[in-house]
C-alpha cells in the first residue's frame, strides 16, 4: 500500500469529520495494539483495529473501502481496554456512517434468504439494519 504522509492530510476534512461524529480525539492513540488483541472479528479483518485508527490519523480515506469497519460487532471490548481511553467502537461507527449517510447499504436486505428470515429473531434483524443500512 502506498500512502503519502503529509501534515495536511492529518488535518483534512475527513479526519475532522470522524473526530466530530465519534467525539473521540484520534491523536490520543499511541498504537499499543491492545484493541486488536481483544477484538472478536480480528481473524477476518483486512486491517487490524489499531491500523484502522492509524490510517484515520493519517487521513487515509481508503480505510472506508476496507471490510474491517463492517466486521466490527460493536462489542466494546476495545473501548474498555484501551489504556489511552480511546473509544474505538465510536470511531468504527463514525467510519460506517460516512458510507451509510450517502444512502448506501452494507446489508442487502433483499438478499437475505427466506428460510433465514423465518428463523432470525427480531433482535438480530433490527440491530443489523440499524448498524448496516442507511
Amino acid at each position: 500500500m502506498y500512502l503519502k504522509l503529509s501534515v495536511k492530510n492529518t488535518e483534512s476534512d475527513f479526519v475532522k469529520k470522524i473526530e466530530e461524529i465519534s467525539g473521540e480525539n484520534l491523536m490520543k492513540c499511541n498504537q499499543c495494539g491492545k484493541c486488536s488483541a481483544g477484538c472478536p472479528s480480528v481473524s477476518r479483518m483486512e486491517s487490524l483495529p489499531n491500523q484502522v485508527i492509524r490510517r484515520v490519523q493519517l487521513g487515509d480515506e481508503s480505510v472506508l473501502e476496507d471490510d474491517t469497519i463492517w466486521l466490527c460487532a460493536s462489542c466494546f471490548t476495545c473501548a474498555v481496554r484501551c489504556p489511552k481511553g480511546v473509544d474505538l467502537s465510536k470511531v468504527m461507527e463514525a467510519l460506517r456512517l460516512l458510507t451509510l449517510r450517502k444512502n448506501v447499504n452494507y446489508t442487502q436486505i433483499e438478499k437475505i434468504p427466506r428460510d433465514e428470515l423465518e428463523v432470525l429473531p427480531p433482535i438480530a434483524l433490527v440491530s443489523n439494519f440499524r448498524k448496516m443500512t442507511s
Partner: peptide, 20 residues
C-alpha cells in the same frame, strides 16, 4: 464468558458467528 458471540453479524456472516 465475556467474548462477543458475533451479535448482528448473524444476519450476513453466519460463518463468522459459527467461528465464535
Amino acid at each position: 464468558r465475556g467474548e462477543c458471540c458475533g451479535a448482528y453479524h448473524t444476519v450476513n456472516s453466519k460463518d463468522l458467528v459459527a467461528e465464535r
